[in-house]
Simulated scan of single mutants.
Amino acid sequence: MKPSILILFWMLASHLASAQIALKAGATYSYQKSSESTSSQLAADIPSLFVFLGESRYFEAGFDALKFSNSRSSSGPTVRDYETVVSPFFEYGFIKGNTSSALKFKIGAKAILNNNFSGHSPRYSTEYPFRAYESTITLAVKPGLLYAVNERIFLDFAVPINVLNAGYYRSNLENPAIPIRQQQQSSLRNAFFPETYQVSLGIIYRPG
């Protein structure tokens, strides 16, 4: 076995040996600005898995968004709309501060992998079936503060800074009146430091 693989297994084993699994719940306020409009939202976060890797590192995994929607109407011609959104995220970071201090500084790197499937089956013959798929990746840096209320409960305050939002979009409109190439549209999108501003507050519970 190669030495590099042995080192990787050793590092993983050392992390797992000191790992303490916790659960995190919270809320995030988002403000987004574009050339045409602005929007703001306060939403509860989906509970996530938070792992303390010793005293100075952590790992978090969960879903930034999770949605399954399927509506069907049979009064008259059948119409169907569906949307599926699955956005897992992974975050790895460091906790800095005096081991005896309740308040510590933390900074992490977060990646969100968003997958969105949607479609529409029309009611009338003057409309056409439509399907769309979008896959994006968002990379962010998350500075913040971690406050230990006691040995089991922690408050996690963070200000995510989005560095990159890049993705691929594809749609298909089944209109036989136009060429197949025009029925299918696709594009690549990317934005560095998009104008999305967020503040999050979470509660971490670590079982004894």
Rank of each mutant, 00 (worst) to 15 (best):
T126G: 08
E36N: 05
I112F: 05
A25G: 14
F68W: 08
L201M: 12
A132M: 09
K33P: 05
S37Q: 07
P47D: 05
S121H: 09
S100D: 15
K96N: 10
N150P: 02
L42S: 01
S14N: 02
L113Y: 06
Y169H: 13
T84D: 04
F193V: 01
S101E: 14
S135E: 11
S34K: 06
K67Y: 13
G76T: 03
K24N: 10
I137C: 01
V159H: 10
G76D: 09
K33L: 14
E36H: 10
Q182T: 11
A13H: 06
V141G: 06
W10E: 07
R152D: 07
V141R: 02
Y133D: 00
F68I: 12
G202P: 03
K96F: 14
L145E: 07
Y197A: 11
P129E: 04
K142T: 12
S121C: 00
T126F: 11
Y31V: 04
G108N: 09
S56I: 04
E174N: 11
Y124R: 15
A22P: 01
L42R: 11
V86Q: 06
L23W: 11
I153F: 10
I95F: 05
E127D: 08
G144I: 03
F50E: 03
G119Y: 05
S171D: 14
R72N: 09
P160G: 08
I137Q: 11
Y124V: 13
F50W: 03
N70A: 12
I46F: 07
V85P: 04
I46A: 00
L6M: 07
Q184K: 13
G26M: 00
H15W: 14
R72W: 04
F193I: 04
R181T: 08
Q20E: 14
N114A: 14
S87R: 05
Q183A: 05
A166W: 03
F59K: 01
L42E: 05
Y147H: 10
T196A: 01
D45E: 13
E151A: 11
Y58M: 02
I161T: 06
V79E: 14
N172D: 15
A19T: 10
G76S: 08
N165K: 06
L188D: 15
S187M: 10
Q20L: 08
S48C: 05
G167R: 08
S200W: 02
Y124P: 09
A65T: 08
R206K: 14
E83Y: 02
Y205G: 00
S30K: 03
V79Q: 15
F94N: 04
L8H: 06
S14T: 15
I137G: 12
I46V: 03
H15D: 12
Y133S: 13
K67L: 10
N172E: 15
V51S: 03
